[in-house]
Design a protein around this nucleic acid. Structure first.
Lengths: 340, 340
DNA sequence: ATCCGAAAAGCTATCTATTGCAAAAATATT
DNA sequence: AATATTTTTGCAATAGATAGCTTTTCGGAT
């Protein structure tokens, strides 16, 4: 059983000092080209790999980013919101492009997640990802700031705090989507999803939605807004409740695709035709959105770009550069669930 | 700018030695209860966190597992197979349950991925996840074994090598699925997906499929087997080719849900009715499978269990315990695409 | 009061690489 | 040839914890 070689083993074989080995392997200009070649060749031959723990300890940075994915605690834990899964994919890719490793962790809101990774030096910075009630974790964000933790978050800009966020223009997306359906002749809109500052993303979508209605001289009927979490089940329930209430409407705006999909199913179960009787629109453009029947009209969030922006912003934060919060545009994806 | 506290700071304030702090924080029985309380209180107050790099370096293990997700290089990189995404979710959860952190990395086959993490001591072990041509990376697996790297992989058992795998019973799944459709009266089966040892998962599904046909006195028509990668696009293409060939068939077995979904779309584009004219079945039960039109009949791989088994097995491997390769059963999910 | 053993705490080497500074070697300048 | 420069290399300190071994403490036995 051979144990792993250390830089001393390389040094011994190369007939140089251990520090030279360290320099040679990191392509330091302080070492002669010829020596470098020799050292690197021996390192390769012995299949030597720099011990990251020792390296990180000495240099005090880890070339690792941590991703904290926190989900709505109401969500059962067997199912992860596909939108985040797709973000996770793009973040992973972006990290690897930038030469960083990625530590992934799922957390519940109530956990003591704040700063765990950065404080323990396992990661140089943290990406916070999750929908959710901002108020729930505002105090934790404040702690992060006080501890000088380097992090960025996905979501709406937090004006009250100096936090770098990357989010998408939920307001505009809601506006655009609503406007489109109005053009298709629908007039009585229901909105499924919490519309309060507790759910900033959903709220912005709702506000955009309301603005579009107002701009087109349509009434905003607050009784047609029902709370829902971002799960299919919750969307189903909310829609069922809406239907039972006997109010009339000809479009349901699901605050997320998952809600919309649930709503669509509820409508169809009750014998409504989508989109003829009731149009349905969602938000996110998760992979399954194009496979529902009818395919779901939605506002696409560009997860690839989002992941890249999050990673790039975080790296800048780590390097002490000035970074501004970014707002990405959404794009309207017209499929069939809205009538055209 | 206060710098992070070290165990010496705690020791100073607590009036004890640094080693005592270390012991107290790790709940070593070698330290007095009272002292422990005091030390832990101070640590909490100063918001002290053990430096993982130092700790890992000294103790030579990291409480971190690495997940290497390698995808078929034919896949464009913007889209990750949803099945793996869902595995990733369950692996993350399982790791956190077991007190391990998870490093995630996506790799291309050709990369020098083998052992990167374990050799560099960033992770105690590696989970290898990916469909794919086993032959492509067999030599890398051999290297891993030679280097004494601790790892487990997702996939079919590799009889020729001492590797711990966790996989699902693809053969039985293929059998069960095919049998079900035969009961629904279909007789002429096409299979989309590579059916060779280069794609062991697909191959096993194919073999199970063939066995079911044979057991029911149906002919296996090899000309109805077409290669396809696990993407919707590839499934679409393969189905289109099949249709153009003019051969007759009344069921398409997609080697994965993604292939099946693509095939279904191709059929519908050409005016076929699913399942009346042609039944379609898939494999995996990815989230979107229940949202296609018609909803897809498929064999579910229990990703939650799979993730747990992978993590548990790897931890055992790391601890030097004996572990056997596991084969998980699949479950038949009957929806509408198969005729009932 | 003395001695013994267990419990608790301390001392110091160790883990492996990085880095500032000093020393040596190689090259350039006068 | 002697001195000044510039390149390379080596030495030793350092990063922050863990662990083996030693010492101190303290209640109980003699």
């Amino acid at each position: 059983m051979k144990s792993k070689p250390t830089s001393f083993d390389i040094a011994y074989r190369a007939g140089v000092s251990q520090s030279t080995v360290s320099r040679a392997l990191r392509n330091s200009p302080l070492v002669n080209e010829e020596t470098r070649q020799k050292v690197q060749a021996i390192a390769k031959e012995l299949n030597y790999k720099v011990d990251k723990n020792a390296s990180n300890l000495r240099s005090q940075h880890s070339s690792t980013l941590a991703l904290l994915l926190f989900e709505d605690p109401t969500n059962d834990d067997s199912f992860i919101n596909p939108f985040f899964l797709s973000m996770l994919g793009s973040i992973t890719k972006a990290c690897s492009d930038k030469g960083y490793d990625l530590l992934v962790s799922f957390q519940q809101m109530n956990d003591d997640w704040h700063a765990e990774f950065e404080d323990s030096n396992k990661a140089d910075g943290i990406i916070l990802l999750g929908y959710g009630d901002f108020v729930d974790y505002e105090e934790k964000l404040i702690q992060l700031i006080e501890q000088d933790t380097r992090f960025v978050r996905w979501g709406a800009d937090v004006e009250s705090l100096p936090i770098v966020s990357v989010g998408c223009d939920n307001f505009h997306g809601g506006y655009q989507l609503t406007e489109h359906v109005i053009m298709n002749g629908k007039k009585y809109f229901a909105f499924l999803g919490e519309a309060s500052s507790h759910a900033p993303e959903f709220y912005q979508r709702y506000l955009g939605h309301c603005k579009a209605l107002a701009d087109n001289n349509l009434v905003v009927d607050k009784s047609l807004q029902n709370d829902a979490f971002s799960t299919e089940e919750s969307g189903y329930q909310a829609a069922a409740k809406l239907i039972e209430s006997g109010k009339s409407f000809d479009c349901i705006f699901g605050a997320s695709d998952l809600i919309a999909v649930g709503a669509m199913r509820a409508l169809q179960d009750k014998g409504y035709k989508v989109p003829e009787d009731v149009a349905v629109i969602g938000f996110d453009d998760i992979p399954m959105a194009s496979f529902t029947f009818p395919p779901l009209t939605t506002a696409k969030q560009n997860t690839k770009l989002a992941g890249e922006l999050l990673v790039e912003s975080l790296i800048k934060v780590i390097n002490g550069e000035e970074v501004k919060t970014t707002l990405m545009p959404t794009s309207l994806i017209v499929r069939n669930s809205c009538g055209s």
